[in-house]
């Protein structure tokens, strides 16, 4: 997967300019690079503190880059082993393409196998699928979570969909948190309405189409969220935790966006990669900087090289790592 916005215009509040700004794409590319080159064996938690002149766009850009990197990693490294119909067993977690041209993606746990019936069929989740329409069956590796989806596959106008379309689609049967976003509802509600317009075919993708919350029984890759703005949001998070397994909820990448989120969560986050993003106009700037400085005091220099030159001017980066148990 490649972070390429070349076919899109960024649209905020209904206003767009030609192309996606460099400052935005530089953040997304940086996040993609950092996440896609991380060591899976590392026992450290890598922190990337990003300060921006204004918080706007930071969450979206870093989320898109990180999510793209995580999906690409799963796509490349996990073995979605293809099996035949007669190899199916109850309890298996599978993803199958069905329909005349395989235009439906159905993913879930096999509940019943009735191949000897007059009309041979299998039950996945609560759905029965006729065996004659099944085109392809893949075993889902445990790292992909426990997806349960029944969805018409997205049709793309060309053979090589953009990374945004890939994120928006459900071609990959992944049902687990890939990104742990912690921010305020104001930022999330605002930025997730931002759009990427494709002037060549007059289509558009909203940010919320590409970065989707993980939800019990809902398809696609996801992000979990802890909001700090209200008790009801905290309650929603607790409910989600009760519905999903720990493996589904544990993301390797955390994104703390805003001084509020950093102050509330920095000490309790233990992900492999932690992005702390804040605007230098943040009302809690001093406290945020102090909290980050304290974290830095007990840190080590990053043990790998990262390319910071791609970051646009006006963006400051502090990178360090701490042992995962600190």
């Amino acid at each position: 997967m490649k972070i390429d916005f070349s076919q899109f215009d960024l649209c905020i509040d209904g206003e767009s300019e030609r192309g996606v700004p460099l400052w935005f794409s530089s953040l997304a590319k940086f996040a993609f690079d950092v996440c896609s080159t991380r060591s899976m064996e590392s026992q450290n938690s890598e922190h990337f503190v990003i300060s921006l002149p204004d918080i706007d766009g930071g969450l979206t850009a870093i989320s898109l880059g990180s999510l793209a990197a995580e999906i690409a990693r799963i796509e490349e490294t996990l073995n979605f082993e293809e099996i035949q119909l007669d190899q199916l067993e109850v309890g298996m977690r599978i993803s199958l393409d069905s329909g005349v041209a395989g235009q439906q993606k159905i993913t879930g746990q096999v509940k019943t196998i009735s191949l000897d019936d007059k009309t041979p069929k299998i039950e996945i989740g609560s759905r029965w699928i006729a065996a004659k329409f099944i085109q392809k069956i893949c075993l889902i590796p445990s790292e992909a979570g426990n997806p349960q989806i029944f969805e018409r596959k997205n049709e793309f106008g060309d053979d090589s969909p953009s990374f945004l379309h890939k994120l928006a689609g459900s071609s990959l049967p992944i049902h687990r948190a890939l990104l742990d976003i912690r921010s305020t509802s104001k930022i999330i509600e605002d930025e997730f309405e931002w759009e990427f317009l494709n002037p060549s075919n007059s289509t558009s993708l909203k940010v919320k189409d590409t970065i989707r919350p993980i939800h019990s029984g809902r398809p696609g890759s996801g992000w979990s969220i802890v909001l700090n703005s209200s008790e009801s949001e905290e309650l929603a998070w607790l409910n989600l935790k009760s519905e999903l397994s720990a493996s589904e909820l544990d993301a390797d990448i955390s994104l703390l966006c805003s001084g509020t989120a950093i102050l509330a969560q920095l000490e309790s986050i233990n992900s492999k990669i932690v992005f702390s993003i804040f605007g230098r106009d943040d009302r809690q700037l001093l406290a945020t900087e102090l909290a980050l400085r304290q974290k830095y005091e007990y840190s080590n220099p990053l043990s790998r090289e990262i390319d910071v030159t791609q970051l646009h001017k006006g963006i400051e980066l502090i990178a360090f790592e701490v042992p995962s148990n600190v």
């Binding site: 905020i12 206003e15 700004p21 400052w23 002149p53 706007d56 001017k313």
Partner: peptide
Amino acid sequence: MSRLQRLNSMYAYAEM
């Protein structure tokens, strides 16, 4: 000036 224009010009003149 739209919000996007404001953001773009802010980054354009950053570190002047």
